[in-house]
Write a protein that binds this DNA or RNA. Structure first.
Length: 702
DNA sequence: ACGGATCGTACA
DNA sequence: TTGTACGAT
């Protein structure tokens, strides 16, 4: 439960942006024939036509709802188009939607602090931007107003019969006698409308938005007029809005707490909450939740927009309902391997693109037990330090599973053949990686070096598997890393280290080891630099790079495929500049394929083949008020600094490198090093080719 | 046979 | 810190 901070003033301007039926839009962009027709996205076709996870507004008009089965949807709307979620490794693969979400966040982060709330939702703190606009061009002084803004909705604004609602909205936005706070909200409405246009032009996605003086109200507002519209909540309208709002509509109150308020306190609307004293609510729901409830009843919410563009954890999971339940260790191991492979791939992408390392691996499962008395006991979740490398993650996850299963079965009769006996069944499995922290900037070169290769599974990534590798899962054999290397003194200093890496010793050890090996490996490349056209001429020191960018200037690195898609659409968008209405936008897109649409298909395929992530070097810097954290800022600045291609130059003497390090590696790893170096170069060359070359790159999916 | 796959937070 | 419960989409 979020804790409202009383000391925070409500003189802020917050926006909430919500993509409209996002997965559907992603599929419609890929297949423009689906535009304008009832469409839904389903996963798992086999059972009753699969489960719907996104429904277009045309389909909603026919009564189709999320959580329906594909068959039901067909029943309600026979002409509905059902698109399947991509499948990889026998499970749903949401990567295309994640990447599409990144495109949007990238654009929205231009105008202020930006928090990625979910794959398709973003909060923006527009206070500064709105104040700046007010100083420069206050709304009452504006002579021309873009049409899109006039289609905003203003909560509580009365529109008498016969009046043009657009004109009423324009008058409200430009009212000279409005309060300062409402004028800021008006400014933010202009800014958000502009951002939404940018999103549309550069991604072809529509979204809805809410503008208010805190997150809670902005979120509420963004859902009030969908799709492709925006809603602003003036200060004077807050009480009236909340008074009749059903309590369950409020974020965080859609579940048991909301039900309890209804049944135990007779609270049906947010307004009903006003009768209760803060003490009463605290006594009933605890100190924090009580205060939080008291505040939201008054439209008060002190939650800050966090300034975080990346997810805090990655997970991969699958359910095995009913008959599909897993009953042998072998089948469990198979699925754990699949899930871990996906997770590992995403961890490598995160490392390469965002310079972050995850530190905890967790395994969750659901299970049933037959026959025995306490048959519906919870299957415990287990976690351990995360070691990078697909195989390591797979092994550790299996170990975690076995520990949990032992606990689940009880320690008594598990002595015999507990593993292969049929009195248990696993109905869901998931693995996740959390505690993801940025790595010190001094480490970036090794990431760049290792990061450019294809992800999990292949032997190509084995070197990295063993580089970041110190922590040991429960009941594992030893504490030495698999290379048998002893970390020694770091060649460079990391000022951020104290703050960023003080969680646990194993973090530091990982950094040491990573640096240690990277140094050696770099020596190897240096010797074989004939093959490396990417040898960096950029010998600037870190301090010089920092001088280039202000300390508080945040920058973010995005995945290459997303960026390419954005840049491409941006160019195309220039041709459409004259059209400033979101609802009119798609009138430029006939149902048959235009040349633009054809390009989009190309883009989509390019993205897919690039998702394997051997395209590493194209990075883009974006700025705005973002990270509140110095470490983030430093890291981001560094990673976005001018490093055109290939690895970063090293700041220490090559002669100091001990060449014997390679011989210390296990023989098979040595071989993999060599095997790995070759395709690395080849891919880098291909990467710089045209998009046509890209088009023919081998697909990375299995 | 549960809307599934993922995320996030508060709390013990 | 780990593990659980809950909530959202």
């Amino acid at each position: 439960m979020p804790v409202a901070r009383r000391e925070t003033s409500d003189c802020r301007v917050i926006g909430h942006v919500d993509m409209d039926c996002f997965y559907v839009q992603v599929e419609q962009r890929k297949e423009p024939k689906l535009r304008g027709v009832p469409t839904a996205v389903v996963q798992y076709n086999s059972y009753k036509g699969g489960g719907l996870i996104a429904v277009s507004y045309e389909a909603r008009a026919h009564g189709v709802k999320r959580s329906m089965r594909g068959d039901e949807a067909k029943e309600a709307c026979p002409q509905i188009q059902l698109v399947q979620v991509p499948v990889a490794r026998g499970k749903a693969d949401l990567n295309t939607y994640r990447n599409a979400g990144s495109e949007v966040v990238f654009i929205l982060s231009r105008k202020g602090r930006c928090e990625r709330a979910s794959i398709d939702e973003v909060y923006l703190d527009l206070t500064d931007a709105a104040e700046a606009m007010f100083m420069e061009t206050p709304p009452e002084s504006m002579e021309y107003i873009e049409e899109e803004v006039t289609k905003s909705h203003v909560v509580g604004l009365q529109c008498e019969d016969g009046n043009d609602p657009k004109e009423e909205v324009r008058k409200w936005l430009c009212r000279s006698d409005a309060s300062y706070q409402d004028k800021l909200l008006a400014c933010a409405s202009f800014i958000i409308a502009d951002l939404r246009m940018q999103v549309l032009k550069e991604t072809e996605f529509t979204c809805s938005a809410g503008i208010a003086h805190n997150k809670m109200l902005a979120k509420l507002a963004s859902a009030m007029n969908k799709p492709a519209q925006q809603t602003v909540v003036p200060h004077s309208s807050v009480a009236g809005l909340l008074e009749s709002l059903p309590i369950k509509k409020m974020k965080q109150l859609g579940g048991k707490l909301g039900s309890s308020l209804q049944s135990d306190l007779g609270v049906n609307t947010v307004g009903d909450l006003l009768q209760f004293s803060e003490e009463k609510l605290q006594q009933r729901y605890g100190i924090n939740t009580g205060t939080w409830l008291w505040n939201i009843a008054r439209g008060i919410s002190g939650e800050e927009v966090e300034g975080r563009l990346l997810p805090k954890s990655h997970g991969s999971g699958k359910t095995f309902p009913g008959p599909q339940a897993l009953k042998t260790i072998g089948s469990v191991q198979h699925w754990i391997n699949e899930l871990c492979e996906e997770l590992s791939e995403r961890l490598h992408s995160d490392l390469e693109q965002n310079k972050r390392i995850a530190h905890t691996l967790t395994l969750h499962a659901r299970a049933y037990k037959t026959g025995v008395s306490n048959s519906n006991r919870k299957f415990p979740s287990k976690s351990c330090p995360l070691r990078y490398g697909t195989v390591k993650i797979q092994e550790d996850a299996l170990t975690l599973f076995q520990a949990a299963l032992r606990e689940f079965m009880g320690s008594y009769n598990c002595k015999t053949n507990w593993s292969e006996n049929n009195n248990w069944g696993i109905t869901s499995l998931s693995v996740s990686a959390s505690k993801i922290v940025p790595i010190p900037s001094g480490m970036h070169s090794i990431v760049k070096y290792f990061g450019g290769q294809s992800p999990s599974g292949s032997s190509l990534n084995q070197p990295l598997d063993n580089v970041i590798n110190e922590a040991v899962p429960p009941s594992s054999s030893g504490t030495e890393n698999s290379l048998g290397l002893i970390p020694y003194e770091l060649p460079v200093r990391y000022p951020e280290e104290d703050t960023a890496m003080k969680h646990s010793q194993d973090c530091l050890d990982q950094q040491d080891l990573l640096c240690n090996l990277s140094k050696k490996v770099d020596g190897l490349t240096e010797e074989s630099s004939l093959m490396s056209p990417t040898g960096s001429g950029d010998k600037r020191k870190q301090s010089e790079q920092h001088r280039d960018s202000p300390a508080k200037k945040p920058s973010v690195v995005f995945n290459t495929s997303s960026l390419k898609a954005i840049e491409k659409r941006k160019r195309e968008g220039k041709k459409l500049q004259g059209n400033c209405s979101i609802t009119k936008f798609f009138n430029n897109y006939p149902n048959s394929r235009s040349s633009l649409e054809q390009k989009n298909i190309t883009n989509a395929q390019g993205s897919q083949s690039a998702s394997g992530s051997y395209l590493t070097s194209d990075r883009v810097e974006t700025s705005g008020e973002s990270y509140h954290d110095d470490i983030h800022t430093n890291i981001a600045d560094y990673s976005a600094a001018n490093v055109p291609h290939g690895r970063q130059a090293w700041s220490y003497n090559i002669d100091e490198i001990d060449p014997s390090i390679i011989r210390e590696l296990p023989p098979e790893i040595q071989e993999e090093f060599q095997a790995w170096l070759q395709p690395q170069k080849r891919l880098n060359v291909v990467k710089r080719g045209s998009s046509i070359t890209n088009y023919f790159l081998p697909n990375n999916s299995r």
